Amino acid sequence: MYVCLCNGITESDVREAGRAGHVTPCALKAKFKLKENGCCGRCAKNIGELVEIATQASATSCPRATDR
């Protein structure tokens, strides 16, 4: 599902950003350049939902299995 039509950002993009450590409002705004370059800013108004999506993704990412 798209969360930002201006920049073509999908929920999957936000989850991937969360797994990469972008889990704060400022980090997500910077990562996706929200409210810049013609972006209307509606997605930035819902940044709490984006943070929740990113945080869930970072919490569910699986660490690499180590050889024993």
Rank of each mutant, 00 (worst) to 15 (best):
N37L: 11
R42Q: 10
C62S: 12
Q56R: 14
L34A: 08
R68A: 14
C4M: 06
E52H: 14
G48F: 00
K33P: 07
V14R: 02
C4F: 03
E11Y: 06
C39S: 00
G38P: 04
L34M: 03
D67W: 12
A54Q: 01
N7S: 10
K35A: 13
T24M: 05
L5K: 14
Y2N: 14
N37F: 12
L28P: 08
G18S: 00
V23F: 02
D13K: 04
S58K: 13
T10V: 02
K45W: 03
V51D: 11
I9L: 07
P25R: 06
A20T: 05
A20V: 06
T60E: 12
N7E: 06
C43K: 01
A59G: 09
C6P: 09
C43F: 02
A65C: 13
K33H: 10
A54E: 01
I53R: 03
C40Q: 06
C4I: 00
E36M: 07
R15M: 09
C26V: 13
A27K: 09
E16I: 13
L5S: 15
G48I: 00
L28N: 09
E52V: 12
P63H: 12
K33E: 11
K45L: 11
A44R: 02
A54F: 01
E49P: 07
A17S: 03
C39F: 01
E49R: 10
G18E: 05
V14I: 09
D13Q: 04
A27L: 09
H22D: 15
S58L: 00
V14F: 03
C6E: 06
I53P: 06
A27I: 07
M1W: 08
E11G: 08
S61T: 14
D13A: 08
